[in-house]
Structures are given as structure tokens and as C-alpha cells.
Design a protein around this nucleic acid. Structure first.
Length: 227
DNA sequence: ATGGTTGCCTCGCAA
């Protein structure tokens, strides 16, 4: 298992068939036009769970989790939360609190797992091209960052930061205002590892290649290797 | 600068 897929591409049936033709199993939880998450794997998924536990009324397709061998993997699409004066921001914060509660339950199993995806959280000022300009944005707000730190304090490891100290490495560049060409982005896609997974971490790479292609997603892949 | 770009839910909305 390596790349995070941009779920938006899976709306294309031809791509889904192409992925299967390449030997991938695809588990997806999607919503027409809006949210969606997926897991692509070379071996079949076991014990697939769709939806983040903790709020049965939440209809948004932002969480899928399954096992592959001895590894549990979740793909998440954390709410963006903008604008911060709308109900979207408290929804984001509540969603993060549910994720923390669910992570606690997973951690109690003392097994390797990865919570991967678009967190829509820029963890620190070193993870954004202009910290001052983004201070009030839901991706950078202190309330958002505090809840991300809670996940780390529970015992999860930010796989990229565990292996790379350099600042201003990004996974997302807005389509607008030439952000990609200026390398003005944010690091908002993360792989959070349980202690048992972190013990196996041998590499974590942000691959900028796909973002530079025609018709690219505004995100680029991050992958890690557990050896 | 409340701009700018992208893709679907298409002439508005979310990102």
C-alpha cells in the first residue's frame, strides 16, 4: 500500500476499472459531488468500517478503515472548516474530537495502524508558506492545531516529521494565484502511526511529481514504508 | 485585491 488516492478521481468509472486491471482492490465510501475516501490495496481488505464512529447522524463520507494482514489502515478526509464563523468550523472541531476518541480505542489494541489522509490541518507555522496570512484560516487556527496535537499526545507519530526536520515541505498547493509555480503550499496531508507502526517506519516521502502534471489534483501523494 | 482556479451539484458552491 502506498499512495493516497484523490477520491475525486474515483468518480471516473474508467479509472476504477483501470485500477482493478492493475490488480488493486478498491474499497470506497463516497458521496455524490462532495466527500469521499478510499483504500486501494494489493491484497483484499478485511473488516471494512465506513464512517467515523461517534455520531450516527453524521452522513458525510469522510472515513473508511480496514485491515490488510496485520495492519489496520484508515483513510480520512477531515472537514475543511472554513469559513470559521460558519457552522463548518465547530463541525470540524467536533469531528476531530470524535477522531481522537476513536484513536484512543484503536491504541488500546496495541497493534500497528495508520490514520492517513487529508487532515485539513497545517500543524505548525513551518508547514505553510505564509503563516501570518493563514493565521485565521480553519487549517491553521489554534483550535484546529490543538486537536491535532492531541492526536500526537495520545501516542500517534506524524510519519513525515519523524523522519524529516526541514520546514516548508508541502502536500497541497491551491489552484489559484499560481501557488504551485511559486511553491506556496501547505502540509495538510498526514500519515499518523500507532507506536507499533512507528517502530516499523523506514521511509516517508512527499512525492511532488503528480502535482506538476496536467489536470493535477491540488494535493500531491505522501507515502510511507513500514519494514 | 474578498481577488484568484478548478470541477461538479453547473450560471452557484465548496475547496
Amino acid at each position: 500500500m502506498s499512495y493516497l488516492a484523490d477520491i475525486r478521481a474515483l468518480a471516473r468509472k474508467d479509472l476504477l476499472l483501470e485500477l482493478r486491471g492493475l490488480g488493486y482492490h478498491v474499497e470506497a465510501a463516497g458521496q455524490r459531488a462532495y466527500n469521499g475516501v478510499a483504500l486501494l490495496s494489493k491484497e483484499p481488505a478485511r473488516d471494512v468500517v465506513k464512517g467515523l464512529p461517534g455520531d450516527p447522524a453524521d452522513e458525510q463520507a469522510r472515513y473508511i478503515e480496514a485491515s490488510f494482514g496485520g495492519l489496520r489502515v484508515a483513510s480520512i478526509y477531515l472537514p475543511n472548516g472554513n469559513p470559521v464563523d460558519s457552522d463548518k468550523f465547530p463541525y470540524k472541531l467536533a469531528w476531530m474530537e470524535r477522531l481522537c476518541a476513536h484513536a484512543e480505542g484503536l491504541l488500546a489494541g496495541e497493534s500497528p495502524f495508520v490514520l492517513a489522509g487529508d487532515y485539513n490541518i497545517c500543524p505548525g507555522d513551518a508547514d505553510v508558506y505564509d503563516a501570518a496570512a493563514w493565521r485565521g484560516d480553519a487549517l491553521c487556527r489554534p483550535e484546529s492545531r490543538a486537536r491535532f496535537r492531541t492526536l500526537l499526545h495520545l501516542g500517534l507519530t506524524d510519519a513525515f516529521r519523524a523522519l524529516h526536520a526541514e520546514p516548508h515541505v508541502y502536500t497541497f498547493w491551491d489552484y489559484q494565484a499560481g501557488r504551485w509555480y511559486r511553491d506556496e503550499g501547505l502540509r495538510i496531508d498526514h500519515l499518523l502511526l500507532s507506536p507499533q507502526a512507528a517502530d516499523l517506519l523506514s521511509a516517508c516521502v512527499i512525492d511532488k511529481g503528480p502535482r506538476g502534471k496536467d489536470k493535477a489534483s491540488d494535493h500531491t501523494p505522501i507515502w510511507c514504508e513500514l519494514a
